[in-house]
């Protein structure tokens, strides 16, 4: 069956077909058992429809409807009032936030620090320093530091804290102590310096003794310490150059000057070997 034939049969079954459609449908049913079955099904379907119209009576009363409308109106009014309060709260919060951010921005503009390039150390100048230290030990890698060093060269000492942007007070004090220590510097370059003193071996000491050195070696000399000689004294070139040199030099000098060299070494509290400075008083020249 075509769609058109089905439509005609449906119209006939539901009583909506006009005269032409009725004739056409009857002819179709007479010639086709399939069409007859279809028509019977649709008539049965149409006959079932009235039974679906039988429904139980509606018991929704006007009073219930009125109550529903009134309660909904009450709830809506409450909701709108709550929404108003909520908007007020949000507005207050936003205003507070704006005020706080404005105050912060104003404070930030007032106490703005001098602009220093990123990754450059902060420069502070509130610690008194040795002038030489201020001029010589200033790191030269930073243009900002160089600028500040040049500016402060004639005015007051400068300290450069490379560890943090703002040094705490304790760190500043510690730095001040370290910097204020008397440091003797040599005019010689590192390349021209003598190599660090080597610990005389047991064989060297034995050879010194066997050579008949007049010098007496202290018990602490070259014992187990990795002492490092200090090549210069405070007196500059006139000072004795005292160090734990290889045995041959020591013995030669001892022969020449007949000197007794006493070198004291000590071990630091932290276990690292450190050479103790040799004072002039600890150098005793025999003769």
């Amino acid at each position: 069956m075509t769609h058109r034939e089905e439509e005609i049969l449906i119209l006939l079954a539901f009583g909506e077909a006009d005269e032409n459609e009725k004739r056409e449908a009857e002819a179709l049913v007479a010639n086709s058992p399939e069409a007859a079955t279809f028509l019977a099904e649709m008539r049965s379907l149409n006959g079932t429809m009235p039974s679906l119209r039988e429904i139980s009576e509606c018991q929704l009363t006007t009073e219930r409807m009125r109550d529903a409308i009134l309660s909904d109106a009450t709830v809506s009014a409450g909701k709108s009032r709550k929404q108003k309060v909520a908007w007020l709260n949000w507005g207050l919060a936003a205003a507070c936030l704006a005020a706080v951010s404005f105050a912060i921005s104003m404070n930030g503009n007032r106490s703005a620090a001098p602009v220093v390039a990123e990754n450059e150390p902060a420069v502070t100048s509130d610690v008194s320093l040795d002038e030489a230290m201020a001029t010589n030990d200033t790191p030269t890698s930073s243009s900002a530091v160089r600028k500040y060093a040049a500016k402060l060269k004639d005015t007051k000492p400068l300290i450069v804290d490379t560890t943090s942007t703002v040094a705490p007070e304790q760190t500043r004090e510690a730095l001040t102590q370290v910097v204020n220590r008397p440091v003797r510097r040599s005019n010689k370059s590192l390349a021209s310096r003598k190599p660090a003193a080597q610990k005389p071996s047991t064989e060297q000491v034995a050879s010194m003794i066997s050579l008949g050195t007049a010098g007496a070696v202290s018990n602490t000399v070259a014992s187990n310490t990795g002492n490092r000689g200090h090549e210069e004294g405070a007196g500059g070139g006139a000072a004795m150059s005292m160090q734990a040199t290889p045995n041959a030099d020591v013995s030669a000098k001892a022969k020449e000057a007949d000197a007794v060299v006493v070198v004291e070494t000590s071990r630091g509290a932290d276990g690292a070997n450190r050479a103790k400075e040799v004072n002039q008083s600890e150098l005793r020249l025999s003769g």
């Binding site: 429904i55 139980s56 509606c58 018991q59 929704l60 219930r64 409807m65 529903a68 409308i69 909904d72």
Partner: peptide, 13 residues
Amino acid sequence: RDDAEDIVQEVFL
């Protein structure tokens, strides 16, 4: 019935 009545109430509301 009760569902249909709820629908009617909501529709008129």
